[in-house]
Design a protein around this nucleic acid. Structure first.
Length: 307
DNA sequence: AAGACGAAAGTGGTTGA
DNA sequence: TCAACAACTTTCGTCTT
């Protein structure tokens, strides 16, 4: 968590002060609270045996970023007990409750809506829990830093999900995210780039291999073909055919070639569709693969054997 | 007729002055 | 901030099976 904040978003100062007690990061120069509600993960005690540990442990259910209040909400009590108080106390009570309500309506109402949307999209895409949690965390930070302003909530949610997928190496294409969330692909890409830049999240370029299993199963290709495709992909990476190219295109071309070599031919159109690229891109990658890896011979040999 | 192939023009994003 | 550029797409005509 600490690693995400490098400088003050307001004045750009790197002079940040961490206040552990309050769980806040404050900019020394302009006073902006850069991040709040941080968690201190450090132990302030040590335990030497099971009994001590049981005595000292005091945490409850795990906190989840997928709950808008992280499962730790507070609300000022219900009306029932108010009537034991005198008039003065009672008005104080109502004042407090009003404030509580106002505070929660600001950030938390947004979060509540956003996280509902996030869960919806995430379950639509059948994303693992860890990714959902990560994206919720990213979204929460984006809200705290005011990055949602001027952008639609949904697009930021989609961007956060995309980022979380990439970080956990379960890549989904922008097209899939777009279909699931109903946000324009370009918009998601823009928001994704914006929030990762602003939050200083480092994302490795996605590995084409991560796409293979999903594409292969969508095309109903055999496991042999799938591993063949991975093999081809590795050769391609050795030959430095992969850098700078769209990972989905490379994955698609490898699958196409592998299917061809294993007599499970799929049309370029079919492969292109599941990979979310065009036939032309597949052709280009395919051509490079043939040229650089001399796969032509391999395929010919294979065909001869079949005959 | 469908699929594969390639050329040409257009798009959105990155980079370097 | 703008122009050059690389990757990718769209579109379309031609060739192959």
């Amino acid at each position: 968590m600490k690693g995400y904040i490098k400088k003050c978003p307001e004045c750009g100062s790197i002079n940040l002060l961490l206040n552990k007690e309050k769980g806040e990061v404050i900019c020394k120069d302009c006073g902006l609270v850069v991040e709040e509600k941080m968690i201190d993960f450090s132990h302030e005690w040590r335990e030497f045996d099971h009994e001590q540990s049981a005595k000292r442990r005091r945490a409850g259910a795990p906190m989840s970023y997928t709950r808008y209040d992280r499962g730790l909400g507070t609300s000022v009590g219900q009306k029932a007990d108010v009537y034991q108080l005198d008039t003065k106390e009672r008005s104080k009570f109502f004042r407090l409750r009003k404030w509580q309500y106002r505070i929660s309506t600001a950030i938390e109402r947004n979060l509540k809506l956003a996280l509902a949307e996030l869960k919806r999209v995430s379950s639509y895409l059948k994303l693992p829990k860890s990714v959902e949690e990560e994206s919720a965390r990213i979204y929460t930070m984006a809200v705290q830093r005011g990055l949602v302003r001027g952008r639609s909530m949904e697009s930021v949610v989609a961007g956060a999900l995309y980022a979380a997928c990439r970080r956990h190496e379960v890549p989904r294409t922008l097209d899939e995210l777009s279909e699931a969330s109903g946000i324009d692909k370009k918009e998601i890409g823009r928001t994704y780039r914006f929030i990762t830049r602003e939050l200083g999240i480092r994302i490795l370029p996605s590995n084409p291999v991560d796409y293979i299993p999903r594409f292969a199963s969508a095309l109903k290709l055999s496991p042999e073909t799938q591993s063949k495709a991975v093999e081809i992909l590795e050769q391609a990476q050795e030959a430095e055919l992969t850098s700078g190219r769209g990972p989905t295109g490379i994955a698609a071309a490898s699958l196409y070639v592998a299917a061809l070599a294993n007599n499970e031919k799929r049309t370029q159109r079919e492969v292109a569709d599941v990979a979310g690229v065009t036939e032309v891109t597949i052709r280009n990658r395919y051509k490079e693969l043939l040229k650089e890896l001399k796969l032509k011979e391999q395929i010919k040999k294979k065909n001869k054997k079949e005959i």
